[in-house]
Nucleic acid binder design. Structure first.
Lengths: 213, 213
DNA sequence: TGGATTATAGGTGTTAATCCTTAATCAGCC
DNA sequence: GGCTGATTAAGGATTAACACCTATAATCCA
């Protein structure tokens, strides 16, 4: 029986090291690569084609979501498990949409992580109990109508980030080299999509929404 | 030479377990307690009086900041190291103000964590390189003039909470049965105190401010 | 008692945000 | 080719936020 070849991508060095340590000391597993940023994760997946990728969502320079998508393409046999400190189902959902086969929060136990790896390696999907207890069904057979940050476009998210920093529409326009009017339209569309009344509530929604990545 | 008796308080089970594992396998350390919530952390500190407490900031039912304060009182010999995934100096600062002797982000390496424990145990303060590179001096010799949420009054905090919810000044005035003008003055004073430009950045500041609990 | 702080409120502006409509361009899709 | 959605942009309008000013009553503290 061959060992399951695992790659760990997590920007927290300590977490990465300790997982590596724990998993490597289990005879069923072998950690063949680890890295702290998304770009390197994609490169390493291309080179080593791991059986399982443990992918943190919060990564630089781009998110674990994008990295997941890319790895799906360049190494289709690699199965990806999303790992995050966020318990909000929306994270898990997005991660599964991007092609991950499992999702485990950092609240989960070591045993749960190991089970996730085994399940996903056998071709099953796995979602940790914490998430499962919140939405389970809703997630796997899907219907979405509530205000959701996932409906926002890239441009809109970009503008939200600048709003958060305290930039005015004029400043945002200058920063992005677009017209003030365009920024205003984007702001209006954002508030409409999320059914919010003003920028203050928008920032609060974004900050408290785990779907933000 | 006695082992350094360590207590770990972190609401992420996996992180807690792995640290416990790592530290316990080092002959210099002995993990005598671990827990996942702040209340338990205080109780355990009262009972066991650990040499070192690794205290995560994000805890339930109250924050690691409050837990730190309480442990300082009931177990003055215990030295506390703040641990967090947040790299913002404001977190570290607040943690040190609350009585912690060290601060380490989860970006730090295992080696850095061990060094932190050894330094703090010897009576020194320790801040991880990541934070140190950002503000170091500013933090350790402490002077209070930066925008601080603690300078806000009760009424101002009350109004901030309504702003967060998306209420306009007029709605806030109605809600609190005061004049629109009064609300506007409060808003103005809040922005002035915190050196912010608008409500969006205010909400972001409040949400991401570790001093808010 | 005097001083500081807080909460209150009015006046008078300027600037920014929000709302409404229309519309061109471009990309992807059936 | 037509459809949809995203991004871009404009004109015109109202409302809200923000800036700066003064001023009073209440409270707390030295």
């Amino acid at each position: 029986m061959n060992k399951i070849r695992i790659m760990i991508a997590d920007d927290h060095k300590l977490i990465r090291e300790t997982w590596s340590y724990i998993l490597d000391s289990d005879p069923r597993f072998q950690v063949i690569a680890e890295c702290g940023d998304a770009e390197e994760a994609v490169d390493l997946a291309r080179l080593k084609h791991p059986d399982i990728v443990l992918m943190d969502i919060n990564m630089t320079p781009f998110s674990g979501l994008e990295a997941t998508q890319k790895i799906r393409k360049i190494s289709p046999a690699s199965r990806i498990i999303g790992v995050s400190m966020h318990s909000q189902p929306a994270y898990a959902k997005k991660m599964l949409q991007m092609g991950a086969r499992g999702y485990v929060t950092k609240n989960s136990s070591k045993e749960e992580m190991i089970q996730a790896i085994l399940e996903v390696h056998q071709g099953n999907k796995y979602i940790c109990d914490e998430i499962k207890n919140i939405i389970s069904d809703q997630l796997l057979d899907e219907k979405e109508n509530s205000p959701n940050i996932n409906t926002l476009t890239e441009r809109e998210m970009q503008i939200i980030n600048l709003i958060k920093e305290g930039l005015s529409s004029k400043e945002i326009a200058n920063s992005l080299n677009i017209s003030l009017k365009t920024v205003e339209v984007h702001r209006h569309n954002i508030l409409k999509k999320l059914k919010l009344k003003n920028s203050a509530s928008l920032v609060n929604f974004i900050n408290t929404s785990a779907t933000y990545f």
